[in-house]
């Protein structure tokens, strides 16, 4: 039996449309659900007061600080490593088996579940190197987790810089490093920043990798070696141990708003980047 192509076209159109609607609906539902349950708990005090009584009362200030410090640490470690690797892969070596192996390794790193990173960080940083449950262990673990993203986005950004700029720079007698710092990096900067912002989003939401490495102390961290709790870990513990569902949803709402904000910023940066080169 042959279906009339016009009918087929209609059916497929409707099908694809409904798939899209489902996708968007799920997203909207999750966000609306969390915000509806969580926002009533969120007020100014919730943001600026420390948790009281294991989080049953008070706010989430120390976990916001913990999240920011851990993420900042991870970015500070991963950015130079990632951008450096990207510069090496694109500018300092020819394409060959070695670059393919490095790139393949980075891709594999991106596919490892975050709880494995947590376990690795626990064994290496917490116990073997004796950093303990600390900001340091947590940041380093997160850094390895986001490294592939930073490498890949930086590489793409660097590759999109027109090759002619490199040729001209060399023809004027510049060294490779001068060429990289004066021509390539400034042009690639928006793309690199996009990758970093994306990684910030991932770090903020990460739970498994930090609960094993940064611990779950509720105090504001005093040094790199203090244990600290991030918002997502806080949410996990509040919900899991039934301490306070109200505050758990409040934390989740703050987390979701933060991540939405970061994604919107990324979108804006990418948009600017694309406009610049088209």
């Amino acid at each position: 039996m042959r279906v009339d192509p016009r009918v087929e076209q209609r059916v497929v159109g409707a099908l694809l449309w409904s798939m899209t609607v489902v996708t968007v609906a799920v997203l909207v539902f999750i966000i609306a659900f969390v915000l509806k349950k969580g926002l009533p708990a969120v007020d100014w005090g919730f943001l600026v007061e420390n948790p009281v009584d294991m989080g049953k009362g008070g706010g989430i200030f120390s976990t916001i600080i913990g999240t920011i410090v851990l993420t900042a640490g991870a970015i500070l470690v991963a950015t130079p490593l990632g951008v450096g690797t990207a510069i090496f892969l694109t500018e300092y070596t020819w394409e060959g088996p070695v670059t393919r192996i490095i790139r393949f390794g980075a891709e594999c790193l991106a596919g490892i579940p975050s709880i494995i990173f947590g376990l690795f960080g626990f064994i290496l940083f917490v116990t073997k190197l004796k950093f303990g449950w600390s900001i340091l262990s947590g940041s380093l673990t997160l850094a390895f987790m986001i490294l592939p993203t930073i490498i890949r986005t930086s590489e793409e950004a660097i590759k999109s810089v027109p090759p002619g700029f490199r040729t001209v720079s060399f023809s004027l007698g510049s060294t490779k490093w001068q060429m990289v710092t004066r021509v390539v990096l400034p042009s690639a900067l928006p793309g690199i920043v996009t990758g970093i912002v994306l990684s910030v989003g991932r770090s903020i939401g990460e739970t498994a990798a930090v609960i094993f490495t940064a611990g779950s102390a509720l105090r504001i961290p005093a040094s790199l070696f203090s244990s600290s709790r991030t918002m997502s870990v806080h949410f996990y513990i509040l919900a899991r141990e039934g301490i306070s569902m109200t505050n758990a949803y409040g934390t989740a709402a703050v987390l979701i708003v933060a991540i939405l904000g970061i994604n919107i910023l990324t979108y804006y940066l990418m948009h600017r980047f694309i406009r610049k080169y088209s």
């Binding site: 040729t167 001209v168 004027l172 007698g173």
Partner: peptide, 15 residues
């Protein structure tokens, strides 16, 4: 570097 300072180049497309 010294060579390219001494021997410069103008390309096909203005760049």
């Amino acid at each position: 570097l010294a060579l390219r300072k001494k021997v410069g180049m103008v390309f096909q497309r203005p760049n």
